Amino acid sequence: MKIRPLSIEGAWEITPQQHGDPRGMFMEWYRFDHLADAVGHPLRLAQANMSVSAADVVRGIHFADVPPGQAKYVSCIRGAVLDVIVDIRVGSPSFGTWEAVRLDDVDRRAVYISEGLGHGFCALSDDATLSYLVSETFNPTGEHGIHPLDPDLAIAWPTDAPQLSARDAAAPSLASALESGLLPRYQECRSFVEGLRTR
């Protein structure tokens, strides 16, 4: 398993080693100890989610209040998506930037996304199926979104006809979320994650 940090602090790409023969394939798609070594603390597994999306569906950009936030370990178990991580932490050196990683059922990469970062994806195939391991249970009053088509973010979604949920279509722009005080703060996120490392 290879774990490498992405350009946005708090995000990692995980590439598993696949062992195949004529019978099929086996791999370790999650290792708590290897991930903990890379990020500095174990992932507290509180909930596991799955989504299935048609081609051209865009979901996100979603994030949770910090504390406690919600760290995510995301992998694609069927089909393919372009997974996008957005730095929405006020005061971060990379605030407002994004990075994309293709997740699919061929290379079987995953991404780990720390508390305070925004997350979204675009389905590149029908029945694109994502698995999420998350550090906190769903909290509807503490979870928010940024409009995925916000021109200030200028995410290069690989579709000419993005399909959004009503919730995502009604989400505020990054500038509006910033003005309203909705966004997490970089130093608070860093302090929270540092607290996880010292427990």
Score class of each variant (00 low, 15 high):
residue 75 S to M: 10
residue 47 Q to V: 10
residue 95 F to V: 04
residue 18 Q to D: 12
residue 145 G to L: 02
residue 177 A to F: 05
residue 144 H to N: 09
residue 145 G to W: 00
residue 94 S to P: 00
residue 155 I to P: 01
residue 194 E to F: 08
residue 39 V to T: 07
residue 72 K to P: 05
residue 157 W to H: 01
residue 137 T to W: 14
residue 78 R to T: 12
residue 107 D to Y: 03
residue 28 E to M: 10
residue 12 W to H: 14
residue 14 I to D: 06
residue 151 P to Q: 05
residue 1 M to F: 14
residue 151 P to M: 03
residue 6 L to V: 12
residue 109 R to G: 11
residue 128 A to P: 06
residue 193 V to E: 14
residue 110 A to M: 10
residue 129 T to G: 11
residue 75 S to Y: 01
residue 86 V to N: 03
residue 40 G to M: 04
residue 156 A to H: 03
residue 67 P to M: 11
residue 26 F to P: 07
residue 37 D to H: 05
residue 72 K to R: 13
residue 79 G to W: 02
residue 42 P to Q: 02
residue 147 H to V: 00
residue 58 V to Y: 01
residue 145 G to R: 03
residue 103 L to Q: 05
residue 171 A to F: 06
residue 134 V to P: 05
residue 30 Y to G: 05
residue 9 E to V: 04
residue 196 L to W: 07
residue 140 P to W: 02
residue 159 T to E: 04
residue 162 P to E: 03
residue 90 V to R: 06
residue 145 G to T: 01
residue 71 A to D: 15
residue 52 V to Q: 09
residue 69 G to C: 12
residue 186 Y to H: 15
residue 117 L to G: 13
residue 141 T to Y: 00
residue 89 R to F: 09
residue 3 I to K: 10
residue 62 H to Y: 13
residue 53 S to F: 02
residue 169 A to T: 00
residue 95 F to I: 03
residue 156 A to K: 02
residue 48 A to L: 01
residue 168 D to E: 01
residue 173 S to M: 05
residue 41 H to Q: 02
residue 8 I to C: 07
residue 39 V to K: 09
residue 170 A to P: 05
residue 20 G to C: 15
residue 128 A to M: 11
residue 186 Y to E: 07
residue 33 D to V: 07
residue 166 A to L: 05
residue 4 R to W: 08
residue 192 F to N: 11
residue 179 E to Q: 11
residue 78 R to Y: 09
residue 143 E to F: 04
residue 183 L to Y: 06
residue 24 G to A: 14
residue 141 T to D: 03
residue 14 I to P: 08
residue 114 S to N: 13
residue 105 D to I: 04
residue 179 E to Y: 02
residue 109 R to Q: 12
residue 82 L to I: 03
residue 178 L to V: 03
residue 181 G to W: 07
residue 197 R to A: 10
residue 154 A to N: 09
residue 193 V to G: 10
residue 189 C to T: 11
residue 75 S to C: 08
residue 88 I to T: 10
residue 151 P to D: 04
residue 190 R to H: 06
residue 139 N to A: 15
residue 72 K to N: 11
residue 161 A to C: 14
residue 169 A to V: 01
residue 145 G to Q: 02
residue 164 L to Q: 00
residue 152 D to Q: 07
residue 192 F to W: 15
residue 23 R to A: 13
residue 138 F to W: 11
residue 133 L to V: 04
residue 148 P to Q: 00
residue 33 D to H: 08
residue 126 D to G: 14
residue 34 H to W: 11
residue 52 V to A: 08
